[in-house]
């Protein structure tokens, strides 16, 4: 088991392996996105209360879920990098930050576009919205801290610590709508009760969520490959690779 992990996590082997995965990940992402959008925008019925406007959930909700998911992935990868000093884990943590920031921004923007017609306000300072904005700043913090330190191995350790401190925000975001009075609605799906959403709306929502997960892995591998090349630019395998490319 440990042998397998060590082999897969070695940069040259991982670089080669991930290169084979990328076309598959891209294909699955596009197919799932098309299926999810068709199901969500065309097949799913209108909502009794919000009419057609509710359809923004097919972007907003998966993006918001991913903003939390990517953060947890980043913190876990950061912790693995801190403890075992695995280069691949360090790269995964660092490369997750811009993707997570993108999902967070998407969730905030679509939420704002939804808030204006439904609530009557683009933005309110309730617990859910404020904690999600804090998450965006955490991602920005991770990105800037990494960029500010020249030695990338030292930078990775600093970034992992910051990411781990910020983990405390994740349960706060998730439970904010239950702990405090908020304008944001309570949970529809992530609760012990049965989801309070029609099945024809739930299925495309879950397809979209899966599509976003595949997109994350796809985008992450693309970034990690570049990051590995940059970090290992003085090693034998990168020089060999360049030679092969030049022919």
């Amino acid at each position: 088991m440990m042998k397998f992990i060590h082999k897969t996590a070695s940069p040259p082997y991982f670089y080669q392996l991930s290169g084979r995965w990328i076309p598959w990940l891209a294909g699955i992402t596009v197919l799932l996105l098309l299926a999810g959008l068709y199901g969500g925008l065309i097949v799913a019925p209108t909502d009794y209360q919000q009419g057609e406007s509710y359809r923004i959930i097919f972007i907003h909700v998966p993006a918001a879920w991913m903003s939390l998911f990517v953060y947890i992935a980043m913190a876990v990868a950061g912790a693995i990098g801190l403890i075992w000093r695995i280069k691949l884990a360090e790269s995964v943590a660092v490369c997750s930050a811009p993707i997570g920031a993108g999902f967070t921004l998407l969730a905030l923007i679509t939420g704002s576009m939804w808030g204006k017609p439904m609530w009557g306000a683009w933005w309110v300072w309730d617990a859910r919205l404020t904690s999600e904005l804090l998450l965006l700043f955490l991602y920005f913090g991770v990105m800037s801290l990494y960029a500010a330190i020249a030695d990338k191995r030292v930078a990775s350790r600093a970034v992992a610590l910051l990411a781990l401190v910020g983990v405390v925000n994740i349960p706060v975001i998730h439970y904010s709508v239950e702990w405090w009075n908020t304008l944001h609605q309570g949970p529809t799906i992530a609760k012990f009760d049965k989801p309070s959403i029609d099945l024809r709306m739930l299925i495309p929502l879950l397809i979209m969520a899966t599509a976003f997960k595949f997109y994350y892995v796809w985008a992450l591998l693309l970034r990690v490959r570049v990051e590995l090349l940059e970090r290992e630019r003085n090693t034998q395998w990168v020089k060999l690779l360049l030679k092969q490319l030049k022919g």
């Binding site: 019925p45 209108t46 909502d47 009794y48 209360q49 919000q50 509710y54 959930i57 439904m118 609530w119 609605q185 309570g186 949970p187 529809t188 309070s196 959403i197 029609d198 024809r200 709306m201």
Partner: peptide, 8 residues
């Protein structure tokens, strides 16, 4: 708005 989503 509440957390329920269903057709009319």
């Amino acid at each position: 708005h509440d957390e329920n989503y269903m057709p009319p």
